[in-house]
Design a protein around this nucleic acid. Structure first.
Lengths: 200, 200, 200, 200
DNA sequence: TGGTAAGCGAGACGGTACGTCGAGTCTTAAG
DNA sequence: CTTAAGACTCGACGTACCGTCTCGCTTACCA
């Protein structure tokens, strides 16, 4: 018989769990991630602090779960494939730009990145649960392009993904300049064509 | 004549200022940014808390100044130009990779990004004082390449910079995969050549 | 039903409460009332500051409670009555003098007076809980004397008490001159006999 | 040549000194003694903090001087002597009661007592500069009474003064009960007649 | 079907850091 | 050389949250 105090997940009250996660998202929207506290989440969820500490180790973990819960729904299983690679990529990238420009999403997403940048454990978790699946979907589309000769055979798909999505993510994160659809399309065109001149 | 109560910089003790900034850097190295506190900086610098609050509004601002002070020194004025664009870019990017892989620099740099991602004011300051000057240097090298026909005329230099440096920065930030020299070189090659096949 | 945020006394930890009160008394004895701080009491009691602020509004209030707790125990129920009023009063007053000359008690008592002199609320509380009960005891002894003809019928007992105890308290408070047993006895004799000459 | 830093009083600017003292009195009236600070006095007097510290060791000392400056003026040189001791004493004591009941004077006087009760040095200074001179005046009147047979020869004048003025001061300090003229007169009568019955 | 061992809301507790105020010392510039 | 001004170190203020710890209470499971 163990007395480790590890809680029994089977007895967990799911309504409470959801109340906590959605309170976390709400409060980030209201006061920002820096002023998000466990006590605030608890009060806003109508929950005792201990209930949060029983199931999560830190505010970062709570928010992280909350974010994944939110983002996990309605994920596309595949990128569009109309046969026109450039058009398909632009479509997806412009949608991403719109999402990042939505203030509510912007705040939550920046909060997430803050945690991920500093905490390798969360970063790994994030990679496993959200980023890698998305990468696979992206790579699948690129692989399909490769098979029909729209993408050079020698291109490493990891690098290709980074080349296309990296610049957009970066400009958003660092606010180097306004993040527009035009920029997204320019990135796609430039990445596909390359920087060096093509003969005629 | 203003009555804002803003302190008079001319009376500022510069030795104290430097002690604070270097204490901030030291302490981030020792305990990490999350555990960095104003009190810790003050104690480590042998300084009253009030002296910090008199000149900076937050720990983020202190650390930010400290970082800029550090990074501002010994900045290269120009990228190497041997005539071989690919080689020059690889050289620079590999150096960047090495820097980012240095644990001391890694910690400070991540801390900086955390602040910048959440605070647009700091982001603008960072852009003005460090990022933009660096971008100009990068663009100068690319423009030179354009003039000798090593870079396509229609390429937007902003996009080109993002395409080359963005992926490296991203992989470092998100720890998508280990950040290696090989990756840096692969990024340069791929960005220059483009993703679509070139005829023979 | 109130929402004042006032804490619920039933949940109060009594061991903690006692630790705070006795730490307050200890520390006044060690460093004096002027250097008594909430932080010092908290540290000496092994208690968080917030726990003190939760239950008391100021250091004065803490100390006041501590003093009453101390003084409230072991109070005599009545003054001695041997039939000789002068002797009885001298006995009591000399005991008071000794008490006031005890450095530990002196410090605490002066601290108490400091608070009482400036704060009418504390003064009222002090009167209700300590001073008035003591006055009643004193008046009871004087009333008994009146009944056996040792005290003039027309004497107001309030004034009588003030006349006997007032001078001693005053000399102690203001350090007009050293507070001795002889003085106490002289006060009793003079108050009983009056200042004007008696015939024969 | 000495470098003890002891300031030379002869170079003292008297206008500055007066500005400080009257600022101290003003500010006690405005915010009370507890919230009186050196900085507040300095600002209100248009004076640097150092100027105050150069001449006084503490806020208590400043206020004390300020008070003495105020009270020192217009002191009576002698108590009235109409030949009727009781009447003369009542007149003086009733005047004292009125003074103590004046709110402005009450505040300053309580502040003064707070300092005196805790600080023996100030107490001695107060005794030397205000209390003793007043006692001598009181004793002079009583001595005169003794010489005309209105006061018993064996009465110690120190005790007599304490017996008459002590009760009034005490009731004021501790707010035992409202301080009225009637009380003052009752004290005089009782002290003169004594507590024990007089034959016939 | 009643006992008992969770989970839970609530919130007191020992702590750490916050950002502010004032103490008392020291430096600078003006007169 | 004194002064007004104010930066400096230091320490306490009173507050906000941290993460841990009871408290009763509801709510399953199991005997």
């Amino acid at each position: 018989m163990s007395t480790t105090g590890a809680p029994d997940p089977s007895r967990r009250n799911d309504a409470t769990r959801r109340a906590i996660l959605s309170a976390a998202i709400d409060q980030v929207g209201e006061v920002g991630y820096a002023k998000l506290t466990i006590e605030r989440i608890a009060k806003s969820a109508g929950v005792g602090k201990q209930t949060i500490y029983r199931w999560w180790p830190s505010k970062g973990a709570v928010f992280f779960d909350a974010f994944l819960d939110l983002a996990g729904d309605g994920e596309a299983a595949a990128l569009p494939d109309t046969g026109d690679l450039a058009a398909d990529l632009k479509l997806v990238l412009v949608a991403t730009v719109d999402e990042l420009n939505d203030p509510r999403f912007d705040r939550a997403m920046r909060a997430l990145h803050t945690e991920i940048v500093l905490d390798p454990v969360l970063a790994a978790d994030y990679a496993a649960r959200l980023d890698n699946p998305m990468r696979e979907i992206k790579k699948a589309r690129l692989r399909a392009a490769q098979e029909v000769g729209q993408l050079a055979d020698e291109v490493d798909l990891e690098v290709a993904v980074d080349l296309i999505w990296g610049p957009v993510l970066n400009r958003w994160l660092h606010r180097t300049a306004p993040l527009t659809s035009e920029y997204a399309e320019q990135v796609v065109d430039t990445a596909l064509a390359g920087l060096t001149p093509r003969k005629s």
